[in-house]
Amino acid sequence: MRSDRNLAKARLASDRSSAKAGFGLTAAAWFGVLFLNLPILFIILYGFTTDDKSYSFPPPGLTTEWFGVTFARADFWDALWLSVRVALFAMAIAMVLGTCAAAAMYRFKFFGKESVTLLILLPIALPGIVTGISLRSAFALGDVPFTYWTIVLGHATFCIVVVYNNVIARLRRSSPALIEASMDLGANSFQTFRHVILPNLATALLAGGMLAFALSFDEVIVTTFTAGQQRTLPIWMLNELIRPHQRPVTNVAAIIVMAITFLPIIGAYYLTRDTQDVAGSGK
């Protein structure tokens, strides 16, 4: 959504700009871009290396055997499965709570509204370690044992804001006239919700959910405090990094993780890309 706005602005700006950037500036800008994007390629390269003892560059030889080795390891699949289950449930909770919050914040003015916004933002505004140790200390005080649910609890908390942001952005762009028209034509609130609001929100909701899934699937800092002995995929990877055995397996896992997180993010991008002109928004 944001990128769209920037693109539109960019088009305007490029019409006006005739100046050329100096060589130094161009070089510095490209240095930044390469610095941000080259390192990921090393992950992929090292997934194919024949050297499983050190990080030698250039790799002494290339092989695809590590993919087979990874797929044969039960601990990898257990971790992957746990991560998927946690992410799905955290996503579901975040979608319900995030949508409720967005609807309330869009539709009503009430006392303490700013505090509510702050409360929703706080879990991602504070460093992850603070959220993590807070939950850990609460579980310790309440004698709550670490389970699947303690992980979900933490993840859902910081995922709410992602869904909230997506949904409220869509609500703000959709025209209130549509809802009024629906009511004027005799639909009650439930019918208006089902036939007018929901179809309008659907893609934003889905996009928010997908981003929440990706966020949860990736998370490691809060999870180390709420998982106990359980291993989500990022925690499994962290353990492999600290005590490696079959080092390139970690790279193969990393490649798979990147693929799994990228699909929902690209999906979310496409879902929200063409919604600049929401039906009825033209005035």
Partner: peptide, 29 residues
């Protein structure tokens, strides 16, 4: 200030891509 619309879109993706890739994977890189 200087990037044309295409170039700006490219830069934008180049900045956002790492932001959305796995944190642990990027540290490992």
């Amino acid at each position: 200030r200087y990037a044309g619309s295409r170039m700006k879109a490219l830069f934008y993706v180049a900045v956002m891509l790492p932001l959305w890739s796995n944190y642990l994977v990027r540290v490992y890189a």
